[in-house]
């Protein structure tokens, strides 16, 4: 599998948030704003790159019967190391994202990519697959977070000062001034409705593309016939 295919698979065809529908727990719980969604998504991408990269070289050492416990052990150890490292060196960032990091262990997309890809492929493509799958998830989480934040609060990027320091406070975009808020979008049902809309949107795009292809191909044949 070449890297182009891995990337297009991860970002669109097999997108973990919209197609594989794995890792719904963070997808639905964390996406109340762009900053939350993007932060957790990027952290997941980093963990997935590392977990795929560390499982791939040892894939032939692990007997099939115990591969799942070994993989979980590796993922949990990695996440804990990242958690401790962030807590020690990036305390402010950890204060914001700290609660999400242990959630990554429970995200089945991490284990799914380790099992489906890294256990069968060499190290470089595995790391790329892990990162890109995570990045695809991060994109979905940011868009979903953006939809919910915009409809729910009328802003975008609120809370960015918590992640990047007080200097970033003026990055917050108030799209609709004096907006009274639409609570449903921020609450859990908003996550379900938003995700459903995104999935429907992706399917619509795919279907349109497919029907365009169908209409497109016979045309030259017709033209040639006349």
């Amino acid at each position: 599998m070449d890297s182009k295919e891995i990337i297009s698979n991860s970002l669109w065809k097999q997108n973990s948030g919209l197609v594989q529908l794995l890792g719904m727990c963070p997808t639905l719980a964390v996406t109340s704003s762009v900053v939350n969604g993007l932060s957790l998504g990027l952290l997941t991408a980093i963990v997935m790159a590392f977990s795929n990269a560390s499982v791939s070289p040892i894939r032939k050492l692990v007997p099939t019967e115990i591969r799942i416990p070994v993989f979980i052990l590796i993922i949990a150890a990695l996440v804990t190391i990242i958690d401790l490292g962030m807590h020690a060196y990036f305390h402010a960032l950890h204060a914001v994202l700290g609660i999400f990091i242990p959630l990554i262990v429970t995200n089945c997309i991490v284990l799914a990519r380790v099992e489906a890809f890294a256990a069968k492929n060499p190290i470089a493509p595995s790391a790329l697959d892990g990162f890109m799958m995570g990045f695809g998830l991060a994109l979905v989480l940011s868009v979903l977070g953006g939809m919910r934040e915009l409809i729910g609060k009328g802003t975008l990027l609120s809370g960015i000062d918590l992640a990047l320091g007080p200097a970033a406070k003026h990055w917050v975009i108030t799209v609709i001034p004096d907006y009274h808020g639409f609570l449903l979008a921020i609450l859990p049902p908003g996550a379900f409705i938003g995700l459903a809309l995104l999935i429907a949107g992706k399917n619509w795009l795919d279907n349109r593309q497919a029907s365009n292809d169908l209409q497109g191909t016979p045309k030259p044949a017709l033209a040639a016939g006349h």
Binding site: V62, I66, P69, V70, L73, G85
Partner: peptide
């Protein structure tokens, strides 16, 4: 198999303890 599992547990424990 058990040996491999224990091996990974030990490596994991050492890494976490060090961190």
């Amino acid at each position: 198999t058990a040996g491999v599992m224990i091996g990974f547990c030990i490596v994991g424990t050492v890494l976490l303890a060090y961190t």
